[in-house]
Design a binder for these strands. Sequence first.
DNA 1: GAACGAACCGAAAAGGTTTTCGGTCGCTTT
DNA 2: AAAGCGACCGAAAACCTTTTCGGTTCGTTC
Lengths: 342, 342
Amino acid sequence: MARNPAPRGTRAATLSDVARLAGVSVATASKALNGRNHVHAQTRERVLQAAAQLSFSPNSLARGLLAGRTGTVGLLTSDLVGRFSLPILMGAEDAFGAGQVSVFLCDARGDAIRERHHVRALLSRRVDGLIVVGSSTDPRPPLADSVDVPVIYAYAPSEAPDDLSIVPDNVGAGRMAVEHLIACGRTRIAHISGDRHYSAARDRVTGALAALEEAGIPLVGEVAYGTWEEGWGRAAAGMLLDRRPDVDAVLCGSDQVARGVLDTLRERGRRVPEDVAVMGFDNWEVMTTGARPRLTSVDMNLEELGRAAARTLFEALDADHAKGTRTVQCRVVVRGSTAPDA
Amino acid sequence: MARNPAPRGTRAATLSDVARLAGVSVATASKALNGRNHVHAQTRERVLQAAAQLSFSPNSLARGLLAGRTGTVGLLTSDLVGRFSLPILMGAEDAFGAGQVSVFLCDARGDAIRERHHVRALLSRRVDGLIVVGSSTDPRPPLADSVDVPVIYAYAPSEAPDDLSIVPDNVGAGRMAVEHLIACGRTRIAHISGDRHYSAARDRVTGALAALEEAGIPLVGEVAYGTWEEGWGRAAAGMLLDRRPDVDAVLCGSDQVARGVLDTLRERGRRVPEDVAVMGFDNWEVMTTGARPRLTSVDMNLEELGRAAARTLFEALDADHAKGTRTVQCRVVVRGSTAPDA
DNA sequence: GAACGAACCGAAAAGGTTTTCGGTCGCTTT
DNA sequence: AAAGCGACCGAAAACCTTTTCGGTTCGTTC
């Protein structure tokens, strides 16, 4: 039943095979391979050779069965296709992949039934922990099943305050953005936000207004909520320019909105960044580098968020883990739309 | 050592626990839970109740150890961040997730060392098969280790002709695109391609030229190779309009290039699609829907490719699997840039 | 009433590894 | 030379489930 180029017809070598070939017992073979002491150097060498010769690879199932730990974790996302889960997943995979941990990936498609199904499956595979990645930063209900391994909620926090959640700092992002615009000498700042039904949009507004307040600078016009799309950015920018032609900076709810704003500014003959500075959120590379000029944006550090989730899970594996919601800082990535290219 | 909201302090229930509670032997409990015959209906009911009461979940490790099959597969990508792996991964996860199979996700970051590491880890976990997802459609070297489970190469085919690969039909995509433009009544068609070092770019050119040849229509100008970026699209479109102002359709190597081309056409006062039709490849939603007008594009059906890879792996699990390279058809998604919106 | 058959249940082994603990052997010390 | 000790090795249990096969019980039939 073997298939590939490989050792056709051979069943995977087992520790007994190695032991037999090396002329020792399985116990000794195990100790030799795992670097335990109380095994003669020469014997160990014989075992290692035998293992290499048979290209022995220990059966993680058996090991996990015995140890009560499998070295696996479940990564449960609700929206794999969305672009926010991916960097988080990358970061987590990164943090785990370096070590001895393998990652089960599951996409629940935002369906609660499917989610339960996956949780059950993961638990039956005896994962050591779970990371639940949301598709927006809005709080989500905790897992339906009661789970006896640590669970970390990433991006979307759990609604249950006793769960451990790690989320991006959208308020801080809004604040940082405004501070950057002010640092660029802008004083007439407008905000074209995204979809008001998303806490990400509202939190960024909160942070932005707070920073303006602290600087004693009034917002130009009202916060304009709409959608996350380019078309909204184009339309909103048109209305803004009609009503407040004196605006010298536009903070946009997302990079996509910013792209639309840039288009309208260009058509209306406004120079960016000389006349109007523009910045967005998310630092989505294809949006920022394709724009003219290239777009300054706030990076939400999602990959770092994923890594943080993985690290936190690691800690929770050994100790009883902490509770509550942690945030991950973001950072401004400056490009030509707020500061003239060098 | 328990942690979560769940049954604190309880070790996961085992089949023995269920059996004891139901007052039967583990053998009977097993048979009852697995729906084997030769167990009294009433007994089965007792076992099921006991299992529910203890929220018993069979240990897949033990089961896998015994069965010689784990119901897991490894998904080895070289470029998780790239946008091509993701839909494939989605499709595969989709096809597997419906059944009893769980997916290990590994990202090798394009590093051969890391790839070997991951392959070893996956084999030690006794995965039933592997799917290797490339980051471009250029052939890649086969896995370094000899592997005794089925391997499917997706997106990037293996260089070894005896391996089983599933790739998108880029030649067909180029052909389809031209056929669509011709069907829209265009006769003076130019092609601004992408990076010539990618077989995806060259294959699409091949297909496009073949379709033109068959229709007896000459290409306007030369095939313009460049990069995959918007900036290239803008620049190339400028040069094209200078030299061949009579062009009435531009086929672009990717949606990003097409976005750039659209920008330049707009600035030069050409109406799309009335004066010039434009289309791209990849059907990347954020590019196609953000564009003005919305962009017609060739969808490479990557998600279907992922599903096909999963299905093929399934087949290969039971039978000795076939060899060679299969292609997945693509499809044209028509939007406003080639046909006026309704 | 005895024998037979059917229906149901349980003991045990298998799968591969790790760990504990007891055993063997050789060397040192008195 | 005997006792003791240290170094090394091996037998066996444990982890949990599935399956086989032998055993028990009960009902039925002659």
